[in-house]
Each structure stands twice: as C-alpha cells, then as structure tokens.
Design a binder for these strands. Structure first.
Lengths: 194, 194
DNA sequence: GTCTATAAGATGATAGAC
DNA sequence: GTCTATCATCTTATAGAC
C-alpha cells in the first residue's frame, strides 16, 4: 500500500519538518539529504537555491491551509463550531512532532528571509485574518459567537493567541500548555444560549 | 554625558539586538564584532562559547523583566491597570526597532538550543504565568478584571496572545497590528463598573 | 536525475604575540 | 584584554561524469 512519492515532494516534506522544528536558518541541505537518503547536489537539481525551496514550502503550506479553510467554511455548522475546527487545525500541527506553524516560524526569522518569502508569509496571515473576520462576523449575526470591538481586531487577537500558544507551548514538553490556552480562547468566544 | 559602558555589556547589547531581530542561529560573532567595533577573538575572551553568550543574554533579560514585574506589582493601582502596564512592557520591546521578545525568539529556536538555555527560557515563561495568575486572581477579587475559567489558563492565554501578536505583528511593517490585537485582549479583560 | 568532486566563503573556536 | 593568524568544519552552490 506504500504510495510512490516523487522526489520533490519528499524533499519538501523533509524540509518542512526541519523548518517547523528548528527554523529556516538552522537546517542545511545536508540535513535534508540525510533524511531523504539522497545527495546534496540532487536537492539543488530540484530546488536550485535555498530560497527557491523556502518559497515552495510556503506556497504549498498556504495552498493546503486554504483548502482546509474552504472546507470548514462549507461545512453545515455554526460559526462557533467553525472556530473550534480552526483551532483544531493548529492543534493537529502541534501534535505532529511538536511542529510550530510553518509561517509562525518564518515570522520569527522574517528579517533574514528573501523578499519573495516575506511576501508569502504576510499573505498567509492576511488570508487567515480575513477568513477569521468573516466567520466572527457571521457568528455575531447568528448569535453563536460573542466578542466586543471589531471582528478584525478579534481575528487578529485570536490568530495571535494561537500562534503564541504554539510558540510558548512548544518550549515545554507538555502538550497541555497549548490546549489550556486555546480552550480558554474558545470558551471566551462562545455565546451563552439565551 | 556619555557613560562608560564596559565591553561585556556592549557585547551583550549587540547580541541581544541581533537575537531579537534575526534569531540565535542567524547571527555570528562576526556580526557582533562589526557592531561593537572589536575583533571576534575579543568576544571569545568574554564569552568563550556562543552558548555562554546565549545563557548570559537570557539571565540578564530575565533579571530586568523581573525588576519590571516587581515594580508593577508594588504600584498603587488596581489589577487591571497592572495588566495594562504589563502589556505596555511588550509594546515597548516591539517599538524598539521591531524587536521580538528575546525569549519568544528563543522559544521558536528551542530545539536547537543547548540545555542550559532551554531551562532559562522555560523559567522565563513559568515566571510570567505565575505573575499574571496572581494579578488575574487579585483582579477577580477586587472586581477590576473579568474572565471565566482558571486564572492560570487565562494567564497562559494572555501571555500566548502577547507573544503571538509580537510574532505576527513584526512580520508586517505596520506597528498597529500588535496594538490592535493587544488592545482587544485588554478590553476583554476589563470589568465593567457596576 | 543522481552522483562525485570541488569551489568560495562563513562559522565557532583556539594559540600565541603584544 | 585585544590583537593577528590559523584551524577544522560546515554552508550554499556549481561543474561535469554517468
């Protein structure tokens, strides 16, 4: 049942895992080569420079996340449940070998990244804030979500909370740190049934 | 009026700024040497290995932050205002050349750090959660702060929100990203006068 | 497409003169 | 304490054989 996975994908998989655990500046082509079982030169054939690889990493990550967001949006469930599902996406990332959000990690290293990568990272966050803002507005209308102030500010606050909870929670061995903080954010947003 | 600042301090200052903007793995002794105007070997005299330097960085950062927390705690103001002051500390760090929280940056790179540094980073966060938990409990008693659930979970959530708001906000050029998210967190915690 | 070989430069770190 | 000089190793990247 073992699927054939092409080289470029295997390289991206290894690279993504390395970025999410150690950061973009902390891994080398040698690390990927060791994990995939090929030579460094072969990686350069598929991704000539490290920034090409980095760019491809974010593009794929954004595409996958965009699909998840679209799926959640289409689900027949209320806005609060959509937020729960959204938080679940982050929980899943973290539970997978204590991975940090790829773009959260890139955000930390932002100043050292080539321009093409910076723009992708900014696009990721802008996209998520826009998605969250829409869901929060829907939640207010349908009275399944509660908050004060603008939906956009609340979206920024929630996104910040989740990225920060991954960041800090990852520095501890216990997985519960993230879960406690994230649960607190969700409960706060839940409208009490009237 | 120019004070004499000793070499070890000048080295720490340069190193701290480099970590807060680029990360621990992205700067080298050569970068510090260029900024301070000395040679690489001189840095090794004061801090033999990079991990010695890293450790000294966190110890100083924790000490300074601890002094700030003690000062805020002693102020004659209500618990909500203490939280405002706490948020102000992060705002100040970020406004200083878009610096990320030193320990937030280290948290991202956690897996690549030597054990001695890891423990310092964990200690930093544990200390802040403990301080926030106490203030949040006081706020609930004195009715200046409002939240549901345990004070500790709320403390984790706030700390995560602030670290995350710095992380994401820093990836944009605009300073307002952090301010909007942080303001949202504060307003949410403020008890309405009865 | 993948390999070996190699380049050119950066990295953390040390020895020893001053 | 700071310097020059040097080290071994690692880094991204390329040339060319297979």
């Amino acid at each position: 049942m073992q699927e054939h996975i092409d080289r470029p994908t295997l390289i991206l998989n290894a690279a993504q895992s390395l970025v999410q655990t150690q950061g973009y500046n902390a891994f080398s082509y040698a690390d990927i080569a060791a994990r995939v079982g090929i030579r460094k030169a072969s990686i350069h054939y598929h991704y000539p420079s490290k920034s090409d690889l980095g760019k491809a990493l974010i593009v794929r990550y954004r595409t996958r996340f965009r699909q998840d967001l679209t799926l959640i949006k289409q689900e027949r469930c209320n806005a609060f449940h959509k937020l729960e599902r959204y938080v679940g996406l982050y929980s899943t990332v973290l539970q997978n070998e204590h991975h940090m959000c790829l773009c959260g990690m890139f955000a930390a290293e932002m100043e050292t990244l080539p321009q093409a990568m910076k723009e992708e990272v900014q696009g990721f966050f802008a996209e998520h804030v826009a998605w969250l803002t829409a869901v929060l507005e829907e939640g207010l209308r349908t009275k399944t979500v509660t908050y004060n102030g603008s939906a956009e500010a609340e979206a920024q606050s929630l996104l910040a909370g989740l990225e920060g909870a991954m960041l800090v929670g990852r520095s501890y061995a216990t997985a519960s740190w993230f879960e406690a903080a994230a649960h607190q954010m969700l409960v706060r947003l839940q409208a009490s049934p009237s």
